[in-house]
Design a protein around this nucleic acid. Structure first.
Lengths: 218, 218
DNA sequence: CGCCATTTGTGATAAAATGATCAAAAAATA
DNA sequence: TATTTTTTGATCATTTTATCACAAATGGCG
């Protein structure tokens, strides 16, 4: 590395990155509604954020707006998709063919937002060979080959908590880089693996802190 | 109000509250594993947080540990459940009887963490009257009566994005106070209503920012 | 019993995130 | 064309959040 190397782009805070998909979701909605121009203020009102926050977040990546006018919806949409690298479709594998796995594999909303479930796995022999839409459930032993074949970097864990950690190991072993975990446990993974969690009970328990107690029993 | 009123307990940051359910989940896991005592350091390692953060978070609510020893797992568990008001079971209603609604209504993991789905609603006449486990799907018109009957404060929205905002209105009208929204949109609600969101695509798009681009097409 | 190894709870400090302000630019209007 | 209104992007100030570091307990052990 010499002093003429490309400048290191300033480390962008993860909390900023975490808001971009929300911005994208909303800007795409405006686009679908035929809105051509929007402003940080309008977006802020739709999202419950300050306009300053939205402008500052976007300014990390360039200048997308025009003073006095605001943002061109189609252009901003494009730019956000580029930044998040979702101007294409990413292959995703799914482990767990229970009710939740079925719901995820059957959901038609992934594709146009940049993701496609390309394979489903389960270790229950009764489920292996079964079909979910056009996808046939495979045994977990097949994971490494499928990951290699699709160059897949993302996986969903939709198995019971008791099996999740072991599945995570297998996925990482197979080359998966990011995991979306629906099992209600915190996974132990190497630092170069990214894990995100979805657990509705975490949200419920967050809500109840602020509610007046009103329960059924116990 | 006079000067002898109970002191206002110092406003606890919401970000602290948001971590408590994670702590509870982990402490309960330790309890189930037969662990009797733990420490902020052990919890921190399990959760990928600093021990200081955990101690400081807990210190907002009292002194639960013993110097030199750490925390009694059963006691800490109890205290966290009390703080979050989940030392009981909360009734929850679910709107949307598609694949996702089925998965949620069939999930057996809610009950022992403080929640029970007491009713399911859908506006599709083909679904109304159908059964999910022991629950019969009702028309959305029945929401107000059921909410009153169970004194239910929490609802799940599991309908398509196009219907979610209207459902939210109906729920709020019926007296619901907190909403867990699985539809991929940001709801517009009055300030006294709490909404939390679950949208896997948001997590995927967060992941792809950090991944090397590797797509199928487009 | 005294010493050592632990671990908590907390005040002080540092870092990060948010919010306020404003010049400059663009479009609308007169 | 000149003026007003709007809105961005940047800078600075404030608030919030996280980390550090240590006194005070606690239990184990020789």
């Amino acid at each position: 590395m010499n002093h003429l190397s490309a400048p290191v782009l300033p480390q962008i805070p993860d909390i900023v990155i975490s808001r971009l998909p929300i911005y994208l979701r909303t800007v795409r909605l405006l686009k679908e509604q035929g809105v051509e121009v929007t402003s940080s203020q309008e977006l802020g009102e739709l999202l419950g954020l300050s306009s300053a926050q939205i402008r500052k977040d976007l300014s990390h990546f360039g200048e997308f707006g025009k003073q006095g006018t605001g943002y061109n919806v189609a252009y901003l949409c494009n730019q956000l998709e580029k930044i998040l690298k979702v101007d294409c479709v990413w292959p995703v594998i799914l482990v767990g063919a229970g009710y939740l796995g079925h719901a995820l594999a059957s959901y038609t909303g992934f594709e146009h937002r940049g993701f496609r479930i390309v394979a489903v796995f389960d270790n229950d022999p009764k489920k292996v060979g079964g079909a979910i839409g056009s996808i046939t459930v495979q045994p977990v032993e097949a994971i490494p080959a499928v990951v290699r074949q699709h160059r897949c970097q993302i996986a969903i864990i939709a198995v019971p908590a008791s099996a999740a950690q072991q599945v995570a190991h297998q996925l990482i072993e197979a080359g998966i880089k990011s995991i979306l975990c629906y099992a209600p446990i915190t996974l132990t993974v190497p630092p170069y693996i990214r894990v995100e969690y979805i657990d509705p009970v975490i949200h419920f328990q967050h809500m109840t802190f602020y509610l007046e107690k009103g329960c059924i029993e116990e």
